[in-house]
């Protein structure tokens, strides 16, 4: 299958990219590494006439423990020594994405802005035709929840977003009206087509800012997938925790991805544990709370019931791994 025809733009600055996006409006897509967009284009999924590449914008390649440019390649994040000593969760998360060849191309911005995925959407044209198309492409009904004709249940599978959520990071946006910053927890919308809250025309993600305090947290990421490589997550869990010298929980953040149409913060469901003394039993309780609070859509591999259960198991195991106070004292 050949790519459909489109006009390719390669601006040299972020400002030029914004101008092009403003000019072409809904007729343009952004591309960075292309590992998400181009397969979708081959399947003729919402192709646009213009594709604006960010690949030529050198200023978006910054990489420090407090600022990561959107064009940073996943492989650079994975191999970064400075991240290894400050925010190992980012290294761990990046290393879990897709496969080594794709991480050479895929970018931080691309992974954050990954299009939502669904069994009914990521298919060839003939296949989608056989189902009379879906809400997200050419159709008028969601095929995951057939009663829905105005809400898309496609699943968000970006992995870095979960890690950034538990670190309290924010996204740096540049648009026709200038720059602004939005907390990751305020950025995404649980709707597979809309995807973002308050997304403004022409706006692009130029980077991620991470608070200094995040480096005080013990944070990790765990991914559920059938194969150890290539697969998108059927669930991703990020946990960040801090205990004091008496093993009392000072900070606790939990986020999941690949369960709904956005990365989900479960902070409000686990806040009641802050102040409690960390122990194996509390780790199990936190896991149960995450299990109970999670919801999952039925359109990626492995059924929702199993994925919710694993959200609890992965949370508990991450806590055990990240802080010995949660670990089983027997062993």
């Amino acid at each position: 299958m050949e790519l459909p025809a489109f006009q390719y733009h390669r601006p040299a600055s972020a400002e030029d990219a914004v101008a092009l996006l403003k000019q072409y409006g809904d007729d343009a897509d952004l591309v960075a590494g292309g590992t998400d967009l181009l397969p979708n284009y081959k399947n003729r999924l919402n192709n646009k006439k213009h594709v604006v590449s960010l690949a030529g914008i050198a200023s978006l390649r910054e990489l420090s423990p407090t600022r990561i440019g959107a064009l940073t390649r996943l492989v650079e994040m994975e191999r970064s020594e400075v991240l290894a000593s400050t925010l190992p969760i980012l290294q761990e998360t990046a290393a879990s994405i897709s496969s080594p060849p794709l991480r050479e191309h895929g970018t931080v911005g691309g992974n954050l802005m990954l299009d939502t995925r669904c069994y009914f959407f990521n298919q060839a044209p003939m296949w989608r035709r056989s189902k009379h198309f879906c809400l997200k492409a050419e159709g008028d009904q969601c095929l995951v929840v057939p009663s829905s004709n105005d809400h898309c249940y496609a699943t968000y599978s970006g992995e870095l977003a979960a890690a950034f959520l538990v670190l309290g990071a924010s996204l740096d946006l540049l648009g026709p009206d200038g720059a602004r910053s939005v907390l990751v927890s305020d950025f995404f919308e649980d709707e597979g087509i809309v995807r973002f809250r308050d997304r403004r025309p022409g706006e692009i993600v130029v980077g991620v800012t991470i608070p200094d305090s995040a480096q005080q947290l013990a944070a990790g990421y765990s991914k559920l997938r059938i194969r150890d490589s290539i697969d998108f997550p059927s669930l991703g869990v990020a946990v960040a925790v801090k205990t004091d010298t008496a093993n009392n929980i000072e900070h606790l953040h939990v986020a999941t991805t690949a369960m709904t149409s956005r990365p989900e913060s479960l902070d409000s469901e686990v806040q009641s544990f802050v102040g409690q003394r960390a122990s194996p039993a509390v780790a199990a309780e936190i896991g149960d709370a995450v299990h109970k609070a999670s919801k999952a859509y039925r359109n990626v591999p492995l059924d929702p019931r199993y994925r919710r259960k694993m959200a609890g198991v992965f949370t508990r195991r991450l806590l055990e791994r990240l802080d010995s106070a949660f670990g089983d004292t027997r062993g």
């Binding site: 296949w127 189902k131 150890d228």
Partner: peptide, 17 residues
Amino acid sequence: ALVNGNLLDYRVPTPTQ
């Protein structure tokens, strides 16, 4: 309808497995 008619969703084991 075959849901996984591609080499992403039809999961042949990788070298890591």
